[in-house]
Design a protein around this nucleic acid. Structure first.
Lengths: 150, 150
DNA sequence: CGTTGTTAATTGAGTACTAAATTGATAGCA
DNA sequence: TGCTATCAATTTAGTACTCAATTAACAACG
């Protein structure tokens, strides 16, 4: 597949962004399809993973970790609470979220297949290349230029 | 899908995806902010770039190139036509799009600043590292596993 | 002609998100 | 005991997208 989408005055920065964005879109589309087996979206699955990691966390923390707005998290969480995957308990003005038994079981079922899924998707790269890719992306993220937030 | 019990945490694949996704989200947020100066979204800007490259293209071609649905393109295009950036002419059952003078001028104004913007965003990587990153991502995209589409 | 098939574009209903205003819980002070 | 300030969560209105069904423009064939 020859790709020549960027025009003449191309610089490496733009090209880097172009390929990050392209890879993301292609992978996201497939990944969504993959998760449909369990009627989950990538965001919903990410919620499960994040909560398990922390054991228990506030909605605000989750929003920050996932780079989503608090409003978005509220909606997402309510849906998943209705489906019985997570539970909430208020403490002070904060609502803490944790996985229910059902949520834990779901995650346990999906996790091994997900590991397998991604190792297939990235099989074009050797382990060493994957390591290099990760390192480079990490470096991009670390070098964030100072900007106003909120 | 073949299910192969994985040994320990051979989840470099997942980690690769995690960092691609994370980098994408962080950058997208900033980039959207950047493009607000001209009241454009990343998709709208991408439309301008793609049309200029081809000179003239059908909506279907554009949809495929941008990994969006035809429906989405229709909506996007109508908005940009109303704002005077692009024009359409029907020929047979196909509608061909091209940039108007106004669209060309807008692109000319934004382009140099965009080049500058991204070279700043990726300044954490040397030219050589950026080249390597691009090469790795290209490789990921090229090694797409065959899957059903539509 | 008129009917059928093909395929690009459009429409419409639904999902996932954002931004900004509002609500709710509580601390701390008069 | 209220009054105000703070800050997490929620609500609301709007944007960007998807998927599936429909419409529109033609070709081709009887």
């Amino acid at each position: 597949m020859k790709i020549r989408t960027m025009g003449s005055a191309t610089n490496k920065g733009i090209l880097s962004w172009f390929y990050i964005s392209r890879t993301y879109h292609i992978q996201l589309k497939r990944y969504s399809q993959f998760l449909k087996t369990w009627s989950l979206t990538p965001s919903q699955y990410e919620v499960l993973v994040n909560i398990r990691e922390s054991g228990r966390m506030s909605q605000k923390e989750l929003a920050e970790k996932m780079f989503l707005t608090k409003g978005n998290i509220t909606q997402l969480i309510i849906k998943m609470e209705n489906e019985g995957y997570i539970s909430r308990e208020q403490e002070w003005k904060t609502k803490y979220i944790r996985l229910t038994e059902k949520g834990n079981q779901l995650l346990d079922r999906i996790r091994p297949e997900q590991v397998n899924y991604f190792s297939q998707q990235f099989q074009g790269l050797t382990k060493k290349e994957q390591k290099r890719l990760i390192k480079l992306l990490k470096k991009v993220n670390e070098t964030q230029i100072n900007q106003d937030n909120e």
